[in-house]
């Protein structure tokens, strides 16, 4: 028994794999490429693995300390710290990234469906509705959304078809239609349709937090028109989506309200947050969240108003074809 045990310990100790640094060199008897996972005794294997793990950590900390010392020794002449690799900064180049000096794209954007809003010819008027028979959370979410978006009206769906709602909205001068879909009381989809002639975007919605569920929230938002922040919408598709969100809110925010609605795009997920800010001093700014918060992911952008069967799609997320690289983003 004892002999076997010592052999096993020798085997693991000499392993060229993870365990090689942990052992003294005089026990090196086993071939290179031997790893802890080859030990058949479970107890022994676990023991060796824990030891290997500890050693790894020790080495790492020692290395870190060493590097820090070197940096201190060099003082000002130390080389700049390497930038950590993230998926975002390793992003695959997207050729549709909008160049602000591009005349053609500028023309395309200045004459698209949102041009009347950006030329201040229309005032946003938004209708918010849900799927049929909404349940508690969805209803409350709609109510809270309507407090954020000025000049928005929540209507009960009454089992009406969207294709029948849209002409009525157009005749009543609504500029946008928001439909919240739910699944088992959880809001999970958002259709945003610009009126009168499109486009229509379909988002998947997740992580909905109502005002009640947010910790350290501020007092209820005021009636002031909020400011809008759109972050990281860089590609041509991203621009279209960003313009769509921008056209939900009226021009000329009332800065006295100190409220901001943020649409932050990160890795194709759009995070919505609603904050109130305050300048405490010249340097310090305080923010408090007012809620609700939710996350959107674009599924499709359709030309024209809602027509899922015969409509023409400008962009559809085909996950089998498009999600081949983790570093490729579309917005």
């Amino acid at each position: 028994m004892c002999g076997l045990g010592s052999m096993a310990s020798g085997a693991a100790g000499s392993a060229a794999g993870p365990g090689d640094a942990a052992r003294a060199p005089d026990q090196a008897l086993f071939p290179p490429g031997f790893s802890v996972s080859e030990i058949k005794n479970k107890q022994r294997r676990h023991f060796m693995f824990v030891r290997w793990k500890q050693q790894q950590r020790k080495d790492k900390l020692a290395n870190k300390k060493k590097r820090k010392k070197e940096r201190e020794a060099l003082g000002d002449k130390a080389p700049p710290k390497p930038v950590p690799k993230t998926i975002e900064n390793q992003r695959v180049y997207d050729e549709t990234t909008v160049d602000p000096n591009d005349e053609e794209v500028a023309f395309d954007e200045s004459t698209d469906e949102f041009a009347p809003y950006f030329n201040r010819q229309t005032v946003p008027k938004i209708l918010i509705t849900t799927s049929d028979r909404p349940r508690g959370r969805t209803v409350r979410f709609c109510e809270q959304l309507s407090t954020i978006i000025p000049n928005s009206h929540v209507y009960y769906r009454r089992g009406l078809a969207l294709k029948r709602i849209i002409p009525q909205c157009i005749s009543r001068d609504f500029t946008d239609l928001i439909v919240i879909n739910e699944d088992r009381k959880i809001p999970n989809g958002l259709v945003l349709s610009h009126l009168p002639d499109g486009p229509t975007a379909h988002f998947r919605m997740s992580s909905v937090r109502l005002r009640k569920e947010i910790k350290r929230k501020g007092k209820a938002p005021t009636e002031h028109q909020p400011e809008v922040i759109l972050n990281n919408f860089t590609t041509r598709l991203g621009h279209s989506i960003g313009r769509m969100f921008a056209s939900l809110f009226p021009h000329d925010p009332q800065f006295i309200g100190r409220q901001v609605a943020t649409f932050h795009n990160q890795r194709d997920y759009i995070f919505f947050r609603f904050h109130r800010y305050i300048f405490r001093s010249e340097k310090k700014v305080g923010i408090q969240e007012l809620g609700p918060r939710f996350t959107l992911k674009l599924r499709s952008l359709q030309k024209g108003t809602f027509d899922s069967k015969f409509g023409e799609y400008e962009w559809i997320h085909k996950h089998r074809e498009m999600d081949t690289s983790r570093r490729k983003f579309h917005l």
Binding site: L301, K303, E312, Y313, E314, W315, I316, K318, E321, M322
Partner: peptide, 14 residues
């Protein structure tokens, strides 16, 4: 025969 022979991939829109 009216059969699907192959699909061409790579499109994002209509």
């Amino acid at each position: 025969q009216g059969r699907l022979v192959k699909c061409l991939k790579g499109f994002a829109g209509s």
